[in-house]
Design a protein around this nucleic acid. Structure first.
Lengths: 191, 191
DNA sequence: GTCTATACAAAGATAGAC
DNA sequence: GTCTATCTTTGTATAGAC
């Protein structure tokens, strides 16, 4: 893997646990076993690096959604499980959280390029969940009242909020519980 | 109002928008029109101040819950509205968020006294909502399936998550929408 | 209780050699 | 592409006068 990619990976981990303002190029250099100025060769400023980290994460999570959309006829409950899988994995760890759940707290003091990426992430995800819920209910798989868009916002807010809360409560099953309750709300007895 | 209280108030505002690591005693001094060392007279360290800010917020939100519990026979939908009112007010602003929604992102790099306060806040709130939902369903006001505790966790996660997301989406009605959908999930057509 | 002055460390960043 | 050396600013904090 090339160095830039390694830097992004390590930075992702640091932001996820420490926040954007909670990590420094020095932390990064220590973990990578290189010197601070070497990082500047790849990312001329911390804001550039931050933007790259969120952009890659957005692309990664977005790719899952895209694959589900391409195979347009996946059974809605399965599609939901597929979509939620990478988030659930993060949710089961004691110290990680969705990158954008962490950055949401710092939003107003983020470099503007990062703000744009974070906002785009939220919008993408809510749009995808909206589509999924809409189709699922039309087909008869989901049963909930109200607008799919409204339910999607609730679901996504709970996912992001759950990520933040579970670390403080030190309960690795907290997030899975949120997901299970969400499934129940969507009308089945779960999966 | 005494100076310590003024400092806490100003610090609360700064943390709410900038996060704990995003504000300094200098920022605070500028806003208060005093000098940095004067703040140290009241709060010997930034961690002390941070703890005091969260403690006061926790007491404030907790007081609402306590009042509702004392008057034990309030109609559940009204009790919910009362409880949610101060949060809804924050939610309607473009740049504020629940203090603990912001601090959740920074949780792992918070001074441990602050971590304790934040975790206690989450626990308090979830416990209160659990009680409220439980009683409400017994009485027949709410109609949802599953454990009250599970539904309370979902509701509270959505509240905290919604606070963070709405700032990025720059949509002042986003949070009210979350609340409305939550009411719908609890079984009525809203209020 | 508030001030001036200052210590000390860390952060973001650049210059220029290899 | 990575290094050493260095600059500048900011952040947390203390000493001690008023």
């Amino acid at each position: 893997m090339d160095t830039a990619e390694l830097i992004i990976t390590e930075a992702h981990g640091l932001i996820q646990s420490h926040g954007y303002h909670g990590f420094s190029y020095q932390d990064l250099a220590d973990r990578l076993g290189i010197r601070k100025p070497s990082i500047y060769h790849h990312f001329p400023s911390k804001a550039d690096l931050g933007r790259a980290v969120v952009a890659r994460y957005r692309a990664k999570i977005g790719a899952v959604a895209t694959q589900i959309k391409i195979a347009g006829d996946i059974e809605p409950w399965s599609a939901l499980s597929l979509y939620v899988a990478p988030l659930a994995e993060i949710g089961r760890t004691p110290d990680q959280a969705c990158l954008c759940a962490v950055l949401g707290g710092e939003y107003l003091v983020l470099p503007s390029a990062m703000q744009d990426e974070v906002a785009a992430f939220y919008r993408d995800q809510i749009a995808f969940v909206t589509e999924l819920l809409d189709r699922g209910r039309r087909i008869g798989a989901f049963q909930f009242r109200g607008e799919p868009a409204a339910m999607a916002r609730l679901a996504f807010a709970a996912i992001e909020g759950g990520m933040a809360i579970k670390r403080a409560l030190d309960d690795t099953s907290f997030f899975d519980g949120i997901l299970a309750t969400l499934r129940q709300v969507l009308g089945g007895d779960g999966n």
